[in-house]
Design a protein around this nucleic acid. Structure first.
Lengths: 328, 328
DNA sequence: CGGGGATGTGTCAACGTCAACATATGTCAT
DNA sequence: ATGACATATGTTGACGTTGACACATCCCCG
C-alpha cells in the first residue's frame, strides 16, 4: 500500500479510502491512485484488514460429509449466496464417527477466521455433546429443531411427507408403508412423524416403519421385506436413494411398479426422472435453504433482528412410479 | 495473549513459544501458561498470525458446481486431507456461464487468504481465458492436461475407458457405441479418445459417438437414438448418470439389458449397484484424487520437489448390466 | 464578509503475533 | 578455572491496514 501511495504521490490513508470507497476523495486523486494500483498490481492484504477490523468477511460451514444429495446441493447454494454477499466460505469437515471431533472442529473454526457459522449436520449429533461454541459466535443451523437453541432454516419436512402420503392415499391405497431414515436425523424423524400422523388422521392402519439409513442399500433391504408382504401396495421412502433400492428389490422380486405397488421418494435427485419407472418424489428447494441460511447468518452478523426459524416449502413431483391402487 | 502472559506471570513471547511449541520453555513455565490459557479461554488470532507470518494455512478451491458426483466427492476428500494436514479450506464458486467471473474468482482468492489453489474445473474452460493467476501462487489442477502449464492430478481416464471397452469386447460384442461427455471436459475427451483407440486397435467399426453433457437427460436422449438401431449391442456411457438415462430409454423401448444390450457406465455412483439392472461401471477413486491434489499442493507450498502430473488408477466393477453378446 | 459546513488529504497509533536479538543461568569438556 | 554451548526467558519492532483526529480549502448563506 505504501508503494502505491508513493507511486501516486499521496498518503497511504488516501489509498485506503480509494480501495474502500469511503470518505471524500477527489476525482483526480482517485484516478491517480487507481492507476498506481493497476500498475503495481496491488491487492489489499486481507490478514491485515481482518486484524484491524476484527471481521473476516468469512463464513464457516461445519459438515460431516457431502455425500447425501441435500448436503452438497445446500453447500452449493450457500457458496453462491455467500459469494454474492461478499463473503468467503471456509469448510470444516468433521469426522462423524467421533463425537469429540466436533469440538475440535469448533475450536479450529474459532482459531480460524470466521465471523459466523452454518452447521450442516444432522443436529441430533450435536444435542448431547458438550460443544464449545465460541461465545458470541453467530450460528445458524440447517436441519435442527428448537432444542438446539439456535436459529435454524430447514425444509418443511412435515409438509413434504404429508403431501407424499396424501398423494398415495388419494390414489386409493388403503395404507402406506414407510422406509425411514436414520434415527439421528431430525429430517427422518419429522418425515416419519408426519407419515404416521396422516395415516392416523385417516383412521388407517400404521405398519412398523422399515429402518433405513438413507442409502440405496438399506432401501433395497427394506424393499425385499416389503416385497414379501402381498398386502403392500404403497411405499413412501424417506429419500430417493432408498426409493431406488426399493425399486430394485421390487424389480428383482417380479413386482411391477406402479402396476402392483406405488413408490414415492423424497429429494428429487437429478436422476429421479430417468429411473425406471421415473420416480414420483418430493422436491426440496435446497437453493432456498442455503440462501436463507446465509441471509439469516449475515443478518445476525449485522446485528439485525435475527430470525428464529424458517421452513421452506416442498413440492410434489408426480411421475410414473405411482398409480391407482390395483388389485394385487 | 497479553492477558495470558500477565495471568501466567511471563512475557508474551513465552506464551507464543508455548502455543507454537517452538524454542526452549521450562516445564513449570509451560504448565503455568497452559493453565492460564485454559482459564482465559485464549485462542490465537489467526489474522495476526497470518499478517506476521505471511502464511494463512488455508487452501483455496475454485469450482463451478458441486453437482457432478466427482466434484463433491473430490471436494470431500480434499477437505478431509486438508484438515488432516492442518489446513483450512476456502471455497470460491464461479459462475460457469460467465468466463469473466473466473478472473473475479481468482482476484477474490488472492485478496482472501490462501496459500495455494486447487482448481476443480473442467480445464478447457480455463485454457483460452486470460486468467490472472496471482504470480507465484501455487496451483494444482484436477482434470487438466499439460497445456495448462500447472501440475495436475487426475483419474487415469484412458485406462478406465479402455478397461470398459475391452470388457465389452471380451464379452463378444462386435463393436461398442459411446455416449460421450461434453466437449469442454478433458475427462470426456480422454474417455472418448480411449474408446476410439481400443476399437481401432481391434480393427472394429467406430460409430459416431452420441453427444451428451453428463446429465441423465442427455443419456436418455442418446439411448433413444441407440435403441432405434438394432445393430447396437453394447454401449459405453462416459458417466453413470448418462448410463442411467440410457437404461431408461432401453426399458421404455422394450429392449432388455443385458439380454439384448450391455451397458457400462463410469463413476460408480453409490446408487449404481441398486439400479435395475445393477450397473457395470468404472470406479474412480476420488478420495485418492483429492488426497494427492492436496499433498501435491502442500509439497509445492513447502518448496519440495513439485509433482508434474499424476494419474490415479480406476477399477472395473462388473455388475449385471453387461453380458455376452446375444443374437438380437 | 464572516462563519459554518461540506470536501479533500495527511499523521499517528493500534490491532495480535512472532522473528531477531539480548540476557541470564547452568553444564561440561578441556 | 575457563570458555563453549545448551537452556530458559524477556524486549523490541514490524507485518499492512484503517479509525480517530487534525488540518486545509472552498462554497454558500445570512
Amino acid at each position: 500500500m505504501e508503494d502505491v501511495a508513493r507511486e501516486a504521490g499521496v498518503s497511504g490513508q488516501t489509498v485506503s479510502r480509494v480501495v474502500n470507497d469511503r470518505g471524500y476523495v477527489g476525482a483526480a486523486t482517485r484516478e491517480k491512485v487507481t492507476a498506481a494500483m493497476a500498475r503495481l498490481g496491488y491487492r489489499p492484504n486481507s490478514a491485515a484488514r481482518a486484524l484491524r477490523s476484527g471481521r473476516f468477511r468469512t463464513l464457516g460451514v461445519i459438515m460431516f460429509t457431502l455425500a447425501p444429495y441435500g448436503n452438497h446441493r445446500t453447500l452449493d447454494a450457500i457458496a453462491s449466496r455467500a459469494t454474492e454477499a461478499g463473503y468467503t466460505l471456509t469448510l470444516i469437515p468433521v469426522d462423524a464417527s467421533n463425537r469429540a471431533t466436533v469440538n475440535g472442529a469448533f475450536s479450529r473454526l474459532e482459531e480460524h477466521a470466521v465471523d459466523g457459522i452454518i452447521i450442516l449436520i444432522e443436529a441430533h449429533e450435536l444435542d448431547g455433546s458438550e460443544i464449545e461454541i465460541p461465545p458470541g459466535m453467530p450460528i445458524v443451523v440447517i436441519d435442527s429443531n428448537k432444542r438446539f437453541g439456535h436459529p435454524f432454516v430447514d425444509i418443511d419436512q412435515a409438509q413434504g411427507a404429508r403431501t407424499a402420503v396424501e398423494h398415495l392415499l388419494a390414489l386409493g391405497h388403503e395404507t402406506v408403508h414407510h422406509v425411514a431414515g436414520p434415527p439421528e436425523s431430525y429430517a427422518a424423524e419429522r418425515r416419519q412423524h408426519a407419515w404416521r400422523a396422516v395415516l392416523e388422521e385417516h383412521g388407517l392402519p400404521v405398519s412398523e416403519p422399515q429402518p433405513g439409513d438413507w442409502s440405496a442399500r438399506s432401501g433395497y433391504e427394506a424393499g425385499l421385506r416389503l416385497a414379501a408382504d402381498p398386502s403392500v401396495t404403497a411405499v413412501f421412502a424417506a429419500n430417493d436413494a432408498m426409493a431406488i433400492g426399493v425399486l430394485r428389490a421390487f424389480h428383482e422380486q417380479g413386482i411391477a411398479v406402479p402396476a402392483q405397488v406405488s413408490v414415492v421418494g423424497f429429494d428429487d435427485v437429478p436422476d429421479a426422472a430417468y429411473l425406471w419407472p421415473p420416480l414420483t418424489t418430493i422436491r426440496q428447494s435446497f437453493d432456498e435453504v442455503g440462501r436463507r441460511a446465509v441471509d439469516a447468518l449475515i443478518a445476525e452478523l449485522d446485528g439485525d433482528e435475527p430470525i428464529d426459524q424458517e421452513f421452506i416449502a416442498t413440492e410434489l413431483i408426480v411421475r410414473e412410479s405411482t398409480a391407482k391402487k390395483p388389485t394385487r
